[in-house]
């Protein structure tokens, strides 16, 4: 009898712990799984040669646009260069799991708080905030079998990955951090949107076909 009394409380607690990303799809934690980072496919997976994106940064009422170039420097190390339309570099960073190098950065952006946000964002996007093998909580909704979720304790806090369709391991959505540090990345066909809702900061990347 006691367990029937406790069950509703348990469900409420479990639902409360479910990350917002999965709660929206009514997904529930199912089990704990071991994952190899290389088996998940974020949008920036194929960077054997440089890829170029049109980039738009919206911060509150201000907007800035340019071009973002991404490449893989070596295994686990990525380089990103953002420049204006007419070619002036805005920033140039190298990021790996254990380092973040500012090769150049325009003065207005060269501030610790801005660099910290960008470092964290790029680490999440390239999945450099998790070790090669990691444990995750597996989320699912039997009504939506094509969607699966992984909740991970990353280096920089809770990080959630939404995969669709099941079997492709294509990462559609990443959510990282909470409150003011919350970042939500959505990967569409050729568009990546990185959103910090509390900071009113949005970065939209559209892949350019060369």
């Amino acid at each position: 009898m006691r367990k029937y009394i406790l069950l509703p409380f348990l469900i409420v607690i479990m639902a409360g712990c479910t990350p917002k990303l999965f709660r929206n799809l009514d997904m529930r934690p199912a089990t704990s799984v071991k994952i190899h980072r290389g088996n998940l496919m974020p949008a920036f997976d194929h960077l054997d040669s440089a890829k170029y994106y049109s980039a738009q940064i919206d911060f509150k009422e201000n907007s800035m646009s340019g071009i973002l170039a991404l490449t893989k420097e070596s295994e686990g190390r990525f380089r990103m260069v953002m420049m204006t339309t007419f070619g002036v570099s805005l920033f140039d960073f190298s990021v790996s799991r254990d380092s973040f190098i500012v090769n150049s950065c325009m003065e207005q952006m060269n501030k610790k708080v801005v660099l910290n946000i960008l470092e964290k964002d790029f680490r999440s996007l390239f999945m450099l905030n998790v070790p090669e093998h990691f444990s995750a909580i597996y989320y699912k909704n039997p009504q939506k079998p094509d969607w699966i979720g992984y909740g991970v304790k990353a280096d920089d806090g809770e990080c959630d990955y939404l995969i669709y369709p099941k079997g492709t391991n294509f990462v559609r959505n990443i959510q990282n951090g909470c409150c003011i540090k919350r970042m939500n990345a959505v990967f569409d066909e050729q568009v990546v949107t990185i959103h910090h809702p509390k900071l009113k900061l949005k970065l939209i990347l559209t892949e350019l076909q060369q």
């Binding site: 040669s49 440089a50 170039a69 490449t71 380089r79 007419f86 060369q210």
Partner: peptide, 14 residues
């Protein structure tokens, strides 16, 4: 025509 050469990328964008 505009050619942006980024050394780190090893190629240029046109």
């Amino acid at each position: 025509t505009q050619e942006k050469y980024v050394s780190a990328m090893g190629n240029s964008m046109k």
